[in-house]
């Protein structure tokens, strides 16, 4: 599913070159549940961004779903993100002026799916994430857990191959965080690859495979 070969990402900090990722090679199979742990600046977010095609490696080769995606044009990258990847962020990143239903609908709009089909798929998603009663509420009127559920509904509405979650419970209470994780894990069980970046050990422990990172390198990879 995800194949990294010698992926390197360098950031210029003043006159210094910092290796955010240093010749990373990694394989993640479809349906895997992977956690990535490491201290701040270890490169775990950069790794997630490159997997999600938000960022491009400076060298190396990345194959997603059997296809080399290293040299895609920006528009092709956008399309791949839309169809194969779902992002879940620590700070939810909902559009504040749109309702919960409209936020969930956004990827369908970008995918130019006809309005009638959009309506029924959004309704399904609202039901699946127990948000029917909140459909017409704006993000500011929702609790943290509800917001993250909306974000997950949005991330999964186009049935992506992989869900990339960056500290998905970082802004949530412990119990609500656990609920959100259970939602994500349920999705994983139906065949979606789930990659969670965190520095919460307890959260990391829930995953089947644990990748540890330090200074742009993978220092541990246990199942």
């Amino acid at each position: 599913m995800i194949h990294f070969a010698d992926i390197t990402r360098i950031f210029q900090m003043g006159d210094q070159s910092v290796y955010a990722l240093n010749k990373i090679s990694l394989d993640i199979a479809a349906g895997e549940y992977v956690s990535i742990m490491g201290p701040s600046g270890s490169g775990k977010s950069t790794l997630l961004n490159i997997i999600g095609l938000l960022d491009q490696p400076d060298s190396g080769c990345y194959e997603l779903d059997g296809k080399n995606v290293t040299d895609l044009t920006e528009d092709e990258q956008a399309q791949t993100r839309r169809d194969k990847i779902g992002f879940v962020f620590q700070s939810f990143h909902l559009v504040p002026r749109l309702t919960a239903a409209e936020n969930i609908e956004m990827p369908l709009i970008l995918g130019e799916i006809p309005p009638e089909e959009r309506k029924s798929r959004v309704a399904e998603a609202l039901q699946a994430f127990d948000l029917q009663s909140r459909a017409q509420h704006r993000p500011a009127e929702l609790s943290g857990g509800q917001r993250q559920r909306v974000a997950i509904a949005r991330a999964t509405i186009l049935r992506p191959k992989a869900i990339l979650a960056d500290e998905p419970t970082g802004n949530l209470d412990h119990s609500i965080g656990a609920e959100v994780m259970m939602l994500l894990e349920t999705l994983c069980k139906t065949g979606t690859t789930l990659i969670v970046v965190t520095h919460d050990r307890e959260l990391s422990a829930r995953a089947k495979r644990h990748i540890g990172m330090r200074d742009g390198k993978i220092v541990a990879d246990t199942s």
Binding site: L54, Q79, R81, R82, H93, M106, L110, A155, L158
Partner: peptide
């Protein structure tokens, strides 16, 4: 800006 980043993350291209 964060909204624009989000739109790009969920698949909006530059033209969108």
């Amino acid at each position: 800006t964060p909204e624009i980043g989000l739109l790009k993350a969920i698949g909006a291209n530059a033209a969108d």
